[in-house]
Design a protein around this nucleic acid. Sequence first.
RNA 1: CGCGGGGUAGAGCAGUUGGUAGCUCGUCGGGCUCAUAACCCGGAGGUCGUGUGGUUCAAGUCCCACCCCCGCAA
Length: 309
Amino acid sequence: MRIIFMGTPDFAVPCLLRLLADGEQVVGVFTQPDKPKGRGYTLTPPPVKTAALEHGVPVFQPTTLRDGEAEKIIRSLAPDLIVVVAYGKILPAEILFFPKYHSVNIHASLLPKYRGAAPIQWSILCGETETGVTSMLMDEGIDTGDMLLHKTTKIEENMTAGELHDVLAELGAQVLSETVSALKNGTLCPVPQTGESSYAPMLTKALCPLDFSKSAQEVHDQIRGLSPYPTATFLLSGKRIKAFRSKLGGTADKAFPAGTVVSCNGDIAVVCGDGNLVHITELQPEGKKRMSASAFLVGHNLPVGALLE
RNA sequence: CGCGGGGUAGAGCAGUUGGUAGCUCGUCGGGCUCAUAACCCGGAGGUCGUGUGGUUCAAGUCCCACCCCCGCAA
């Protein structure tokens, strides 16, 4: 099967590699243009580009798919199928439906929930205990196409978005592999999306500051859901600190104000709005490396009673 | 040349106006204890990121160059 693969970030890499490993004929990869990133604005290629080049697959990085150029390229590649995984661009109908088998998308949620850019993080932020990966036949809407196959996975209590990302990326590769072979065999039954839908928009820094007046569970979910990027933050005597990991456990003896540190025994236990504690176990001060809370406590005098905000 | 913080014992940090390098944790040994992540005593462990660099009687501490790590912003 001649396949054009479209994807950009790390999440899409296992899918691409799986297609190659399955012996599919990946005739071209579309990915976002290299962008200036990080300190010094170094021009950085997207992960999918790097992976594609390592396997000798031609890479295309158009800034738009709507000027006719991209369509010409795609026609010349004569694909039987287009596979889209976290590409970051909306495909026009003339491209979407050009291949014989049209276009298939792998999405990191159980549709119709968490359509959009950041389903992995939002599923944790919203306190879900289960999520998954869905393959669908693409239509012109955002993640609204008819569903093909899906696989589910549990979200463990202390799992971070980064960990869930890796699990779902692998699961996505499996779903993709099965979808492609079922497509060839003609055994798929597309199912329209019904039921309650929701939208998982891109994450912004506005979501990062922690609000300890919320419940411990909510604070915990915020820390997990934003870890390792863009990372929940709090202030300690004016300095911003990132929180990468936390766990729940215990309640405050007295009615301390939300954000009060009630113990520094191996981790930083903070009172939340509902009186329960969230234990920050891994953090990173500005300009420092990421470290365990216990390491942080060894070198910093953080008194019980200190206020985090 | 986008802005900024930092590189000192395995880890996290101090090191004041330049004058034989410290703290906490860990580690090793010993002691106490029914027991312990507790407590007591003792020890090991650093050419202070790199430089046959500069200033100085003397540099972790000032100056210069380079390497590396990180936060912001994109």
